[in-house]
Design a protein around this nucleic acid. Sequence first.
DNA 1: TTTATTATTTTTGTATACAATATTTTTCTA
DNA 2: TAGAAAAATATTGTATACAAAAATAATAAA
Lengths: 251, 251
Amino acid sequence: MSRTAPTAALNEGESDSRKTSQNDRIYEEMLAAILEQRLAPGTKLSEDTLGEIFGVSRTVIRTVLQRLAHEQIVRIQPNRGAFVSEPTPEEAREVLQARRLIEEGIVRKAVRNQTLADIKNLKKSVASERLSLETGDHEAWVRLSGDFHLKLAEIAGNQTLTAFLRELVSRTSLIIVQYQKGTLSPCSCDEHTEIIEAIAAGDEDRAIELMNAHLQACEDQLNLQGSDAKADLYSIFAKPAKLEEKSGSVI
Amino acid sequence: MSRTAPTAALNEGESDSRKTSQNDRIYEEMLAAILEQRLAPGTKLSEDTLGEIFGVSRTVIRTVLQRLAHEQIVRIQPNRGAFVSEPTPEEAREVLQARRLIEEGIVRKAVRNQTLADIKNLKKSVASERLSLETGDHEAWVRLSGDFHLKLAEIAGNQTLTAFLRELVSRTSLIIVQYQKGTLSPCSCDEHTEIIEAIAAGDEDRAIELMNAHLQACEDQLNLQGSDAKADLYSIFAKPAKLEEKSGSVI
DNA sequence: TTTATTATTTTTGTATACAATATTTTTCTA
DNA sequence: TAGAAAAATATTGTATACAAAAATAATAAA
């Protein structure tokens, strides 16, 4: 079976040869499974099991896991295996901060580079987003919501920044899964729409301001008290926190 | 069982086990070889050969090559192998643009987070840099010159941004190798020193301005006409450019 | 001689085998 | 029964074997 319709253009200079796309196929499937919450943070990703599921040897699974690990979606512990990442509150703040910085630059460039077709495309994207929200298709919404930001990056036209943002968007999904307070964002579609309008109007300052507010709103909807659940347990019982695998940076 | 004593601070949650560090060792050596110009852009990186050199099987070499490829230091062509990256002029511009954006944010944070020890540390770093320049130790200079920017990132205190910048710094080295016009930067040490002084003085705007100027100066020293050598050949002979492996993105 | 075609060799992609390490279960002792 | 030590099991890390593809060499035709 030929691979699922080449959804979108392939990022990098990969030819669409059969072998390589097998790698990509498994990568895409695993990434989707994690971002759509079918694989919860902390889940062990056994090489043997995944190999059986996808009908390949551990060799190719390993490659995929390493790729996901490099994007911080998966965490590899030497001799212990791979696990779905459990971003700490600190990491969450870092990712959102990095996004504010990078997306400010992206918006600035997008305002300059935009064409009418781009604006149309963005509007269509937000329309799909709104639809998925109305029909309650959570999985589609997660994907589309991120796609908006990536589309903006493509308009800006710096592939290096786009690649960074792609990683940040994925990590943001994982962060939202782990730290969303109550309900989902009331309707980020409206915020996206406002951003589009500011860009279309060529109002750079306003577009940047809106994007910053949008990302800040996203962060504000998270439940990021100083420490994560495990550390809280220790603080609650007033014992010195043991050094555990779950703890954040070693330093 | 408690794990091996956490020797020193390792970046990520990697234990210091022998096996993993073998991987890291080879990675570091190969990265250094590329950045220090002992491996020129375009060089084929044969798995068998590298395996023999480092006394390991292709398996571990493959892992390292994939890691380098993800950092854009190496380019993997399916069924053809790995090559030292040959960044295009467009990529070069993108990388420098991304750096201006990210390092602006880093400088802003560094101004706020700085301690006296940090400033001392930075000054020491620049002193080493100057020394390497005076003694003509080019390899050391390449490394130290990048270290300055990474130290700044660490002061800023966002590990996610630091990781991005680390990749960008490596890529910049590769870009300089390929596109430096005449002599090396007259003395970027002075520019580094000025940046430190602005940061120490808490003058955010000036520090940002100096950093931007510094990175722009770096870009201006490159020979980045619209197209690379190969494309030039075609334009010179006024023939339609054939699509070659060397061309940039496929899309 | 030059070009096209075929055969050979080399190299990468993937599966499997074995070794090293972690995890679990069992057994033993207090 | 609870806890510790030891054996058994399972999982990862690495090397090797084999298949598929590309690069090279050799041969044949013009």
